[in-house]
Amino acid sequence: MFKVKYFEYIRTSAVIVIALAIAFLIISLVSNQPVKTIGIFLFEPLSSKGHIGNVIEMAIPLMFTGLAVSLLFRANMFNLGAEGIFYFSGVVTSVLAIHLTLDGWLHPIVAIAAGSIVGALLSAIPGILKAKWNANELVTSLMFNNILFGVGLYLLNYHLRDAKAFANVSYKFEKTALLSKMVPGTRIHTGLLIVIVLIIAAHLFLYKTKWGYELRMTGINRNFARYSGMKTAKVIILVHLIAGFIAGMGGSVEVLGMYNRFQWTSLPGYGLDGALVAMLAKNNPISVIGAALFLAYIRIGADMMARLSDVPSEMISIIQAIIILLISAEQFLKFWKNRMLLKEAKEA
């Protein structure tokens, strides 16, 4: 019943089971009513329409960044810059949402387009540096995260900040700029449609076009791809542009869908979460949906748990760390795969 071709699924499931088991263990150690707390963690996100809505709202930005990182990882680019781009594009979109006056439907389109294009251009910088001079894209993208955060925070504090508000937040967005809600009783916004369309487009791009094929081949072996006549430098720059566009759009959509002022005074973390989503999805665009929903589910579960019981929600970051460590571990359960291979070879 256990076939080698299902191995990756089995392994991903095993990682999730282990992570949840550790979550239960932590809860049992910490909580006075472990059974009740575990129940809240597992089932509270499904208990009402509003809570299901929370899961989907949380999944939207994770899908954006997860998709962006998936494409980069697919091209074997270790770029973690989605974090800074998500933040900075949010700032750019906020500027337009505050200062522009446009018709209802045009306003969000212009604001989001601006955020996405800025994201694409910023993302291209590490891409060009990598493609032309082989500068380590990981280090440059990590540095860019901090640079973009600094500049974004400066814009917030010095140019967008509403002195009348009591917190460190921007002026209110124009009503026309906000994305409309799709499901009454929840805050699920039209960003969901946008990201689903993007995911399908990315799937088609990756598996049905010449560019997508070159991207995958470059990811598997850049030298081989180059020797077979592909322009790998172009591919690398292209994937950076696309990923930056998607991550930037994610930040823009999140800002206009969920808030009416810009209020991130630290990096929101969705970029690095995107790496986790990409790993769970095995860098597959369609699987990003499920991976993002899963991550959003356990996060909302942890939030509910913190509200209704005595276990703080920060537990979730321990669980996330375990998932990352195990899911990218090539050797984890490898012995089992080898055994299955051996058995199948014998049977054949």
């Binding site: 973690l80 790496a275 986790l276 920060e314 537990m315 970051s317 321990i318 996330q320 990352i324 460590l325």
Partner: peptide, 25 residues
Amino acid sequence: FKTHIILGGVAINMFASGGTVFILY
């Protein structure tokens, strides 16, 4: 386990920022 070193580092940072608050609380 041959976890990718960069992703391992990301995991450590994620663990630390939430885990320290968890233990502190």
